[in-house]
Simulated assay, not measured.
Amino acid sequence: MKAVHFGAGSIGRGFIGQLLHDSGYDIVMVDVNTALVNQINAHQGYDLYLINHAYQKVTIDHVTALSATQDSQALIEAIVSADLITTSVWADNLAQIAPVILKGLVQRQHLQKSRLNILACENAFMNGQILHDEILKADTQQELIDLDAVAAFANTVVDRMVLDYVTAGQHSVAIGDSFELAIESSQLVDPKTPPIVGAEYTQNLQKYLERKLYIINCGHAWAGYIGYVLGYNIIQDVFARADLVQQVRQTMEESARLLVRKYDFTAADLDHYIDFAIDRYQTPGIKDPIARVCRSPIRKLGPQDRLVAPAVQLEQYGLPNELLLKGIAAALLFFNPQDEQCVILQKYLTDHGLPQTIEHFTAISAASPAFKKIMKSYDQQRQLLAQHRDGEI
């Protein structure tokens, strides 16, 4: 079997590439980085290092690489002969790879090749649908008779700790043990024939999307924003304090109560998931800047995102949400002059005041009990911020 994977970055090699290898595929990696393409071809593979096992080396073999910019004909031929296509190029870049995928699919159509699974393993909601739509947009000459007759685009949820790791002059990847790849089984070519070993297949992807967003992404962002208020610059300094770790856990537990109420998760399931998340954040030797964790606060304060969405739904169910609201208040205080969203947010706050800012960016109504709690927490944390960061706001 052959898989073509777009994106030979840390997720591509350290997560999807490993699963493809373990599933028995010969892999063609596609990337714009010529040096990385040459390195993979020189070794017919690449190395991974296991963070949880003293950085033990694992070699992923049966891998070749193509340049996305220089090997277009060979890439089209690889798509024509592929049994599976996967991507990890960042969702914003799916439009860049859609034209060459289109060309390969048009050739498959002419040759009457079998229908193909294409999995966009991107950290984006409805990632498969995004790629599907980008391929349709690229088909300006209407060469494909019917895209859905040629390929299937199942949406996915992806999560794993992967870090760039340079050793002996080679670009490698360090990976954590735990991972999540959930695949929307109903959208596969054949739901009874899973294409990747080790993935979780579900007919209800929404619950996995919300579990990751409301627990892992939520807890990470909460720790970052609270850590910023307390004067920390590295997220691991937050996770070095037992009291703050407990608060992060309790924040995740607020979201977990919501997920138990909405879906068929058990409290025990989500306790294990929270343990997995916190263990990751406490991995020795990792240094993650708070400026990176907290970046793009407008997006992270959105009504469908990691902090606001669970907080609002918990209020609707009459369940506790105080710690989530504290995180929202802290996010409103975050400022990094190099972050465009921070600049926009703080200017809006200066021009329009806190009440209008809360409503504008979170869509939380002033009539909501949550609104008043955010206002109160904002004032309390603003005082802490002034103590720890010399009054940056």
Rank of each mutant, 00 (worst) to 15 (best):
Y201P: 02
V189W: 05
D190C: 08
Y214M: 12
P191M: 04
C218M: 14
I196Q: 01
I183D: 12
V173H: 11
V189Y: 05
H220R: 00
I175H: 04
P194Y: 11
D177E: 15
I216V: 14
G169K: 14
A174Y: 11
D177C: 00
V189C: 09
I234C: 08
D237M: 01
G169D: 14
Q170G: 00
A221T: 15
I226P: 00
T193N: 13
F179G: 09
P195Q: 08
R211S: 05
L209M: 13
Q247K: 13
I234N: 13
G198S: 11
K212M: 08
A168P: 01
V245Y: 03
Q203R: 06
D190T: 08
E210H: 12
A168K: 04
V245K: 05
L230A: 09
C218V: 04
F239P: 09
Y214R: 11
Y208K: 06
K207I: 07
Y225H: 01
W222D: 07
Q206L: 15
C218E: 13
L205P: 07
L181D: 11
Q246T: 11
Q206N: 10
G231C: 02
Q246M: 03
A242F: 05
G169W: 15
Q206D: 11
V229Y: 10
L181W: 12
A223I: 09
I235Y: 02
G219A: 05
K192E: 12
S178Q: 13
Y165T: 09
A221N: 04
D177W: 01
V229F: 10
K207D: 05
T202H: 05
G198L: 08
G231Y: 05
I196Y: 10
G176Q: 14
S178A: 15
I226C: 03
Y208M: 12
V189I: 10
Y201W: 07
A242Q: 15
I175F: 10
F179S: 11
I175K: 06
A223E: 05
V173R: 06
W222C: 10
I216K: 08
L209D: 00
Y165V: 06
E200T: 15
V197D: 13
N217E: 06
N204S: 08
K207Y: 00
Q247R: 15
G224Q: 02
I183K: 06
Y201H: 02
L205H: 08
V245I: 10
E180Q: 15
I216Q: 06
I226R: 13
Y228M: 01
H220L: 07
L209N: 06
V197M: 12
I183Y: 11
A242I: 13
S178C: 00
Q203W: 03
L209S: 00
N204P: 00
G224C: 02
A182Q: 06
A168V: 00
P191N: 07
Q246E: 12
A182D: 04
R249D: 04
D243H: 06
Q187R: 14
K207Q: 13
R211C: 01
R241M: 07
H220V: 02
S186I: 02
D190M: 02
R249P: 03
K212I: 00
I216D: 04
V166P: 01
G198D: 06
D243P: 03
R249M: 02
P191E: 04
I175D: 12
D190E: 09
V189M: 06
S185E: 15
A199E: 09
Y208N: 05
